[in-house]
Nucleic acid binder design. Structure first.
Lengths: 194, 194, 194, 194
DNA sequence: TATGAATGAGTATTCATTCAT
DNA sequence: GATGAATGAATACTCATTCAT
């Protein structure tokens, strides 16, 4: 019985933590670190503000862990591309889709905020510096190279093109709901061979 | 005698106000309304915090006036395009250049922040609602139409294309210094006839 | 379980609020709105300044609610007179006593300050305008009339006499501790039939 | 010629000083020391706020000098009564009139504020303590005594009656414009022999 | 675990006062 | 003498965080 109870508690613990985290991602993404008040997170999560501190040490700590999660997720998604059985251009399309996808956007937005704006905790700066755009470019290079060889991807300096491409997609993703989201096919014009 | 003195005072007044405003635009653009502290603005402007309140009623009031200025400037720049003697595709290139230009970026960033993020004062929401993307699209439509007729601009629904194009350019601009800025020629692939 | 806890919290809430309110009334009465610093209130109430804002939105809001309370209390006290079984002149004496009573004085002082001095919030001005002296006069008129009929109250225009009488009592009350407080019997000379 | 110029300057100096002083008395009387902003005084006086400091060292210094002036004036007015050729009750009536007179009221109000309310500078406290009500009572005693002997003034303890009387008149005076001002004849009921 | 009362560091804002012109 | 730009101490208010229950 104590075992059961413990398990239940554990389950509640995880559920609550997830509940607060989900609320936090969205609000951090939309308002940034200084614009996000603990009360916004807890009221969106439907719990008291005191409860926040049962699950997280500080607001910054949560922000840091979210950014870390975002970095890891994004690296992983790129890694997953290699294992797909699809043509290079298809992989690029899938990546684009994934980045613009509603569910992923908040995490990317968080990364963006960490990368550019706010006064972020030192730990976040470190994290971001360890994963500069160049790393993403490097990981994507094989896919683009194969695409170029196959004649699917436009010619030119690939390192530059991938960086530019990431910039554009990130930018679109960051803009959020105030702007229309372009069709993926249209965006593909940037990399497809004419 | 009083005339001269008055002029001098007027000059000092305008200079100081400008000095504080310039500091504020950059910081607001980078950190947003809640992330910007008065002390950041005044220390960057090299004045005491007290002086801020000699020139502006509140932090929000300054933010509002800057957003208003940004809205007006951006509308004006689009208006100016019509008067140029250049081909449509050239005009689009010039607009792109202008938007990505370093000096204009902070203002666009401000607009972006006002449009998406922060808890902005009601007055700003109003302002932004009065100038949705659609208005910009509408103003640019004649240029794109002419471009399409001349075979310079790709085919398809122009209203949609312009909106998408603005989204991409805005996104790139908003990303700022953490990302590489794409070459304009490369971005033009999105609208040029292949 | 939750029931009990809720009640306790409710009790603490009310007690603290009362504690702060009591401290505030006295200080507002003595020093007025601009002369009263939050720190005066909270240190007199023995709580941190932060707690003040847990219970009240702003200093002004508290002032407003206190003035409202004062208005209501004073109207009520006058209303209560009618239900007493006492001769008219006795009722007037009781009213006088009540107004000069130490415990009621701060509230009247607040009313006085709201009526005359300070830059008060619009809401207070409204409140005060809705309860001019004339309303008090009107409510007291029946008592004085009966007194005059019975030969207890001096002759003459009663509306004027009551207004004057209220002025004198209010004035005495407002002066506070710096001046000797006259005996009630002596003050009654103003309205008693010689 | 330099003499003349000096005189003129002197005249301007005195005029400006008077102009500011007059504005200050009224505002201090109405709003008290903390409720009075330098800008209120100077804008009412129609001068720049900087000019205030050509004529007065600090806001407090002006307040002190005004209270001193008020004390002296009030003592003087009471002293003047003795030299009048009028019956005692007439003198009391004249005193009452003088105190309630519009022009004198602000000074009395200042005294009142100094006596009761605000956090006043030590110097003011001293001044006020040196001139307690008792001194006024003492100075008025001969007049009331003569009045009692002549049968014009009601019987009873005169020291007490005078103190009470001063309290009532001060109170009425202090109330100011929010209340009706009683007729002097009616107030005289308090001291006249029935 | 859950709540909300309580605290205090940090910020925005006001306003007396100084000073160059 | 006169003005208003400039400063900084004082004050109102916010919000992350702690803690008793």
């Amino acid at each position: 019985m104590p075992r059961l109870k413990e398990e239940q508690l554990q389950k509640i613990y995880e559920e609550r933590k997830q509940q607060i985290t989900l609320a936090a991602v969205k609000i951090f993404a939309q308002r940034g670190l200084p614009g996000t008040k603990i009360s916004m997170i807890t009221s969106k999560a439907g719990v008291s503000h005191g409860l926040f501190y049962h699950y997280f040490k500080t607001k910054e700590e949560l922000f840091i862990s979210l950014v870390r999660e975002a970095v890891e997720t994004s690296m992983q998604e790129i890694g997953n591309l290699s294992h797909l059985t699809a043509s290079p251009i298809e992989k690029i399309r899938i990546l684009t889709q994934g980045m613009l996808d509603e569910s992923g956007a908040p995490y990317f937005m968080l990364l963006h905020r960490a990368r550019n704006f706010e006064e972020v905790p030192e730990e976040v700066s470190q994290l971001i510096q360890n994963y500069p755009i160049e790393i993403y470019v490097e990981r994507l290079l094989p896919i683009f190279q194969e695409g170029q060889q196959r004649g699917e991807v436009a010619g030119g300096n690939l390192t530059e093109m991938i960086a530019n491409y990431l910039t554009v997609i990130s930018g679109v993703m960051v803009l959020g709901s105030g702007y229309p989201t372009p069709q993926i096919d249209w965006l593909m014009r940037l990399v497809e061979k004419k």
